[in-house]
Nucleic acid binder design. Sequence first.
DNA 1: GTTGCCAAGTTTTTT
DNA 2: ACTTGGCAAC
Length: 805
Amino acid sequence: MHHGGDIDPRMEALLKDLTGTQREAVLQTEGPLLVLAAAGSGKTRVITRRIAYLIHCGVPPWQILALTFTNKAAGEMRERVYSMLGGHSEENRATRGLTITTFHALCARLLRRYAVPAGLKPDFTIYDTDDQSAVCKKAIEACQLSSSNFPPRSVLAAISKAKNELLDAEGYAAQAREWNSKNIARVFKEYTRLMRHANAVDFDDLLVLTARALKDNADVRAECQSRWRYLLVDEYQDTNHAQFVIASLIAGGTSLPARDQLPQPPDSPPPEPEPSAPRGPNFCVVGDPDQSIYGWRGADISNILEFEDHYPGCRTITLGENFRSTAPILALADTLIRHNKRRKHKPLFTSRTGGDKPQAVLCREEGHEGLLVADWLKARHEHGVAWRDMAIFYRTNALSRVMEEAMRSAAIPYTIARGTAFYDREEVRNAVAYLRSVANPADDISLSRIVNTPSRGIGKTSLDALEVHASREETTLLEALRDASSVATLGPRAAPAVAKFVAMLDSWTGGGSFMGALVPGTLTDLVDRIVRESGLRDMYVKQAKTSGSESDAERVDNLDELVSSAHQFELEYDPTADAALNPPPGAHPDLVIETPPLLALLRAFLESIALVADADAVDPAQGSVTLMTLHAAKGLEFDSVAMIGLEEGMLPHARAVEGLGGDGDLEEERRLCFVGITRAMRRLLITSAKYRTHRGIPNRTMPSRFLAELPEQSLAISDQSGDFDDFEGGTSLPTRVPGVPSGLSLPTRVPGTPFQVGTLVRHPQFGLGEITAITPGSHARATVKFKDLGTKTLVLEYARLTVVR
DNA sequence: GTTGCCAAGTTTTTT
DNA sequence: ACTTGGCAAC
């Protein structure tokens, strides 16, 4: 970069309040750069300043590509960069053409542009998990396999795993050895055939097909490489092989670094660096190997661990200073993560002093654990910490239930961060299926979903006949519908119903051309008309009237909300900013495709729906404690954090432990634990229960090995589980987290009943037992240790318990 | 075409 | 224990 003379004041503003290493990471604009950003080290700040700095140095914004994994991350990054550069608008030269997006969104756009070389039609539909499993079921059926031997879920998992490794159906078949994988290979082939036939892709295909296009098509590669001169990838530790290939190929070169060049003849010299790029491409990756927790989804931690080998000219900058947590919390995290072997060690330090030692408590069972956590949170609240600044983390969603109950009976406001996405609701999915059928006439899955929703006299029998016809004629379902008169097996009542349905679709699309006087003029019109004229809206209105239930009324609201989100999308849609529709100067003319504007808009809308999970669902709640999985916690921070369920089989999860020497997965579990710890700013509580009821069966547990890895000097462990094994003992235990002053203690009786801890009771089925714990509230529960059958937790209302003594 | 019952499967889930 | 999906009967 060329900057002589005076320091520009705006540049100065960009660099101020950055630490030395942060500043280096911003200033090192050229060549490959690995930024190892520890938790809480100001990573986002560095990335956004870096982008702003590049632009400030005169790099045209359209030459910059920043890739993230989530829409949320991309949105935040975009917003911060825009605000640094004077806002975003079409006129703002400073940001025009800048691409900050997710891998999947980038791929979707590239594939629209390069549909033909990628073997697709540009109006392809993106199938979500539900659609995928519908297709998978069909494929399993077509292969004449039983879905009980080949559950779609696990078949899809196998297919996805293969795709992450860039293995296609043929490649998978070639390496399949045993009966099981050979059959999966058959399903894989059929699945792929059905997907292409429906002109549909799944999430993995977005990556796979893009990677393949970049690999195999020199024009595509050249165009991307010449457009994007500065590439930045966030959370690089989470990239899978396909993403690695995409990023590497966009970054530069015609072949891939390291891995894909192997095996090499042992005597061949290392490839010469390209003369135009003495140090390598301007490829900056940011991440933290210690926070790689998506290996099970195909993320390959080697990508970041081996980045320096892939790019020998690479510079590495480590951001180790933590601005989030107190020293004792950091020390704890550091002690834990040092037990991992496969990592790059980096110092974790803070210049802050003071802070409380994290606490661990061994509890009796989950009810006890819930009470302890509730008391702890209450104590924190009394110390002036707002509810919204506290969180409870757990390994699996199943653990949330007990915590919910504990929060409810302690009257602590809470919200559970699990995305029940807007677009997953049945009514919205139905409306979207209409839109997809309109946008992609080959989308048989969507069409079959709506052909009789609401009922219009085209039942299962008719649909089957049409599907058979379609596959015999090797056409789409829609073509079969158009051809209904020649389908002999179709009933006399069904035929006119089908014709009417086809006429309705045509009235929205102008017969597919999206032209004509009767075709809706705007996307909002289109969505609104479809929702109404399809009868979908009326169907839910009617349902709401008859059932009177609130959830049915909500469905109508959701449909209306879909219309307004279409409106919103239309207002914000900026075709000039669409990388796919607007190739840079010099783009290969064969690769440019004309599209009717309304169809382009509809496609873009559908794409945003497919690629945008529920945006607001993950937002930290206002005014309430957040309950979430450890995975969901990544990237967030809270003043006070409670991590529960640190037991063998739970946090390291049983699935990660079982395989012989499956140490790789165990390290991921440890990283998960590390992620949890490093979310805490000031206070951390870790709990482990001696007994945990799982699927209705109480099990004795063992404390997590991770607890054993944390010495007393960095973690205050207190055993409150008492002599729980002892039938006589068990009742007079300390029930507080040490240092939590309030006299809150375990309830020992349920008001208004004879039941209290210690009561001997008889159950009609389970026989004689003793109450060992009580949870009061509207559905009061008692934990009863039965003489013969072990411990069970019963709802007093329903369990027919009689008092013996 | 709709409702209701039984059976099966339950780690995590950025897109 | 609990949800969900497939199938059978009305």
